[in-house]
Design a binder for these strands. Structure first.
Lengths: 377, 377
DNA sequence: ACGACGACTGCAAAGGTTTGCAGCGAAATA
DNA sequence: TATTTCGCTGCAAACCTTTGCAGTCGTCGT
């Protein structure tokens, strides 16, 4: 029932190839003819069949975006940014959710492979080797992970964790707990590494709790352990866990930041709505989404010269996509969930800052930021 | 580079049609041959090209899901449910976000039309007539809206609003404000209608504020107006606005539920995390997602008999999809953001319930539910 | 012993589009 | 005026599958 290119050709009295060109190479067709064709097309409600086009050009103008958990508020801004960036380049984004399941990740890549021109793998949980193998099936850009030979955009959570720990140390905390993330998460490893180093450098003690599900319930469930381990400050893998932890601590009768200081990572909008407002490391999620799309589409080459008529498959050649790794800056946002530690004098409330990092003259409610660094390559 | 059906045929020494049948009609091919073909296919990493298949069968095995705003926590559960339901039937879901923009909605339907077998339109903002027109281009199921002649699944927010208002009236509130949703939202109209009726029936006064953006900031911005209009209780279009409003009221020095009672709609997970915890109307979002997929796929007919060889397009015939409208039940979840109104005696804290609805013996923290009704057709 | 039937497989058309090549008339050049 | 050039358009192959039809061959019934 939908109008095809042939219907338009018939209606406007030209050959289908002319109709085709009217859309894909307008400069090749006489303005007069062109407008006539366009009129007919509009009249019939014709729209090029992207599937058929994809069949011959080899480009679908779709890109896949695989997300660990759409329900985690960390992701939506990234998704939106990716979508709008893609839309500008006349691409569409297909989002898929894996429920934090590595197996689902793999299956989805396979399913998407033939229907998209590339896939954005966001916070993948699967193994490096599997990712590399998959990347031979379809162009991949990984987000929040580094895998050799693949383009990647990562947020510098290491730097973020360092800032957070320094903030805590500066407030007088020595016994610090780290709520780690899910198994297989590159981000979680990175945070742990940086946090451990920072705590060691500051002469403190770090207790690592995990791995855990990166959700509120995951955080809530850890409240008891946090109390038991005697930490006076906690850095959580993400805001969701931090918020869940605050809930759990509250139920245990512990006060934040009175008894325990809590800092999260991500700066989801929710972190501004809790009481107390959450101190957290802001990650540039939207920028990550945009950048990832750009990296995937940077070789938006017009249908990578194929030999239509020739027989044997031509050698792939040096179409090697430049495999850059972009690292995005993070910031510490100081709000109300962190306060002086047990060894601090009675400062009258806010953070009496003396730690080495940049200026943090924060009072509650007027968040100050300490910025990390950009290390692009 | 990726292996095609021809490669497999060559490798296994059979005709491509046999390979094809091996995948799409296994019972038609000799088990021996079949296993040989499968071995070769596996060997070459062959996967059928869905685009090419779609070209001839007319079914892509994809379905589109158009969402007003992925960042609104109301939607993710629906998305996840739809995805898992679709996956079970060997379909994939492509999610797209419109940023609450009706124009984007239309454009997305067009873009998706040829790449999917149907589209789920979730909380659409565009006009009924446009939706009907679009439905001639691609099968549509609308969610949270009723449009004549189209299959729909709606949550009974009318019933939910009624329960909420009755709850408020029962607590002794007379001056009630309604924070309405975005322009063009069927849900918002429905809520308003039901709320107005319920308030009138209870002898109270309803002030409608809006339309508004259905976000926290949208809610926060209304705090001042709420104070000015003198309402002691507020029903918000959704939880996000309710939570934003609570923030705004807090900043104004008003206490919830001391000075103002607040109830939301949706029961997003976040509503359990605010202080005070939000009283709200729970909507069955996951069920809606599942149901919508089922409705779209109920006519999963094997490639609706097409005349491959014949000339003139055959008459469409009576393939009319049954146009059911399913209505899903909602529940009132009483938490801590609602309390006695100005005319109530000094009840000692909790909700002294006497309104007509089902049992609500709620104390804060132990939420009770009052269920609505199912009206399927 | 012969025809019918069944299981399996090959043949070729079709689906909607893109694109290299060739054709054509007219304008520009020699 | 003859010839090249250029702008535009048509022709047909190709992309990868699916599927109706026809062919082969062996089995069964009579």
């Amino acid at each position: 029932m939908p109008a095809t290119i042939r219907d338009v050709a018939r209606a406007s009295g030209v050959h289908i190839s002319t109709v085709s060109r009217t859309f894909s190479a307008p400069h090749l067709v006489n303005p007069e003819t062109r407008s006539r064709v366009l009129a007919c097309a509009d009249d019939l409600g014709y729209r090029p069949n992207r599937a058929a086009r994809a069949l011959i050009t080899g480009r679908t103008h779709n890109i896949g975006l695989i997300i660990a958990d759409i329900a985690n508020p960390f992701f939506p801004p990234l998704i939106k940014a990716a979508e709008s960036q893609a839309r500008q380049r006349d691409y569409h984004v297909f989002v898929a959710d894996t429920n934090e399941d590595p197996a689902a990740e793999e299956e989805l890549v396979h399913a998407l492979a033939k229907q998209v021109d590339g896939v954005l793998l966001c916070s993948p949980r699967m193994s490096n080797s599997l990712i590399e193998q998959l990347s031979r099936e379809v162009p991949l850009v990984v987000i929040n992970r580094q895998v050799a030979g693949l383009p990647a955009v990562v947020m510098d959570v290491g730097q973020g964790a360092r800032l957070a720990i320094d903030h805590l140390l500066g407030l007088g905390h020595r016994d610090i707990a780290l709520l780690s993330g899910p198994r297989g998460s590159w981000t979680s490893r990175e945070i742990r590494r940086a946090a451990a180093a920072a705590v060691r450098a500051g002469g403190g003690d770090l207790t690592v709790l995990g791995p855990n599900l990166p959700t509120e319930t995951g955080g809530t469930a850890l409240a008891e352990q946090v109390r038991r381990c005697g930490a006076t400050a906690v850095l959580a893998y993400n805001d969701l866990m931090a918020i869940g932890l605050m809930e759990g601590l509250h139920d245990l009768g512990l006060r934040v930041p009175g008894d325990v200081s809590v800092v999260g990572i991500d700066d989801i909008t929710l972190s501004r709505l809790t009481r107390p407002k959450l101190t957290t490391v802001a990650t540039p999620t939207a920028a990550a989404g945009r950048t990832a799309v750009d990296m995937l589409l940077q070789h938006d080459s017009p249908a990578a010269t194929r030999n239509l008529r020739g027989g044997g498959r031509s050698s792939a050649g040096d179409d090697r996509r430049t495999t850059a790794q972009v690292m995005l800056q993070t910031e510490l946002v100081i709000r109300d969930s962190t306060g002086p530690g047990p060894r601090a004098g009675r400062t009258d409330g806010a953070a009496g800052v003396e730690h080495p990092g940049p200026h943090c003259p924060a009072g509650p409610g007027s968040p100050a930021v300490a910025t990390g660094e950009v290390v692009a390559s």
